[in-house]
Design a protein around this nucleic acid. Structure first.
Length: 264
DNA sequence: TAGGCCATCTGGTCCT
DNA sequence: AGGACCAGATGGCCTA
């Protein structure tokens, strides 16, 4: 191969890998626990994404709001200890509470009671939960990032699962960097849980939210203060990274999910 | 210093 | 023939 052809091939390969990395960066922002300062490695991003998809599939399959412990356990399956700690840190979880066999003697550093906090989201408190914990600042993840807020109820049916597990008091290191994704779904509308659903919205209303910039729950750094991320064009085309909440893609997803749940 | 992660280069293979 | 894709090799950077 001539030098010119080789150089052109190298440039193409570089470009291709940049595209791959851009897509991976988009994936990092979609999976739970996105942090600009503590980036997940490529392999950990893929593992976490796989676990996230699996966990959400299980939620859809079972039609029930899962408990937080099971969900986080599923998220952390196969992840390295530092990544597990990061996920735990994002959720204000003590890894020992959901991975007892893995981390039997982890030191726990919980924030002092009454410390300042960002209203409405849970943040991680330094120092790290374990010796292997990456340095702060950590990413943060609202409970609603995983599950949803039911009408008129701050964190809906999952709120009890956060009791004694999550710590909502404590200084925040970062505004939430993960897209404040929430899956709006009233799992309690199934027949066997009809009673519990009495106070909830009876109609299924699934939607995936990527909140706009601004406010403590916003995403200004990632989304450039309201503009789309040019690196995620393939997602924008489909509307997944939209700012207005209800894109075509999202409506399609809602329709499909609603169909699934109404058929069941 | 070792190990992990990453970007880049390179040659091979497959497809259009 | 040229481009896309892939995997191996290599070297740099960072952290424990």
């Amino acid at each position: 191969m001539t030098d010119v052809r080789r150089m052109k091939a190298n440039a193409r390969e570089r470009n291709r890998m940049h595209g791959l990395n851009d897509a991976l960066e988009c994936l990092r922002k979609i999976v739970p626990c996105y942090s600009k300062t503590q980036k997940l490695s490529k392999i950990e991003t893929l593992r976490l994404a796989k676990n996230y998809i699996w966990a959400l599939s299980e939620v859809l399959r079972s039609g029930k709001a899962p408990d937080l412990m099971s969900f986080v356990q599923a998220l952390c399956k196969g992840l390295s200890q530092p990544t597990t700690n990061l996920v735990a840190g994002c959720l204000q979880l003590n890894p020992r509470t959901f991975l007892p066999e893995q981390t039997p003697d982890l030191p726990v550093h919980l924030p002092p009671a009454g410390a300042a906090t960002y209203p409405g989201h849970y943040s991680y408190q330094s120092p790290g939960l374990t010796a292997g914990l990456p340095s702060p600042p950590y990413g943060t993840m609202e409970p609603s990032h995983i599950f949803h807020q039911v009408k008129g109820q701050p964190y809906g049916p999952l709120e009890p699962f956060f009791d004694g597990v999550l710590v909502s008091d404590g200084p925040a290191f970062d505004p939430p960097l993960s897209p404040p994704l929430s899956i709006n779904g009233n799992f309690s509308s199934f027949k066997h849980e009809a009673a519990a659903a009495a106070d909830y919205d009876k109609s299924f209303s699934f939607s995936v939210h990527y909140g706009g910039a601004g406010g403590a729950g916003g995403h200004p750094a990632v989304y450039g203060g309201g503009g789309p991320n040019p690196r995620c064009s393939e997602l924008q085309v489909d509307g997944l990274m939209g700012f207005d909440g209800h894109t075509h893609h999202e409506r399609m997803m809602n329709a499909q999910l609603n169909a699934i749940f109404h058929d069941s």
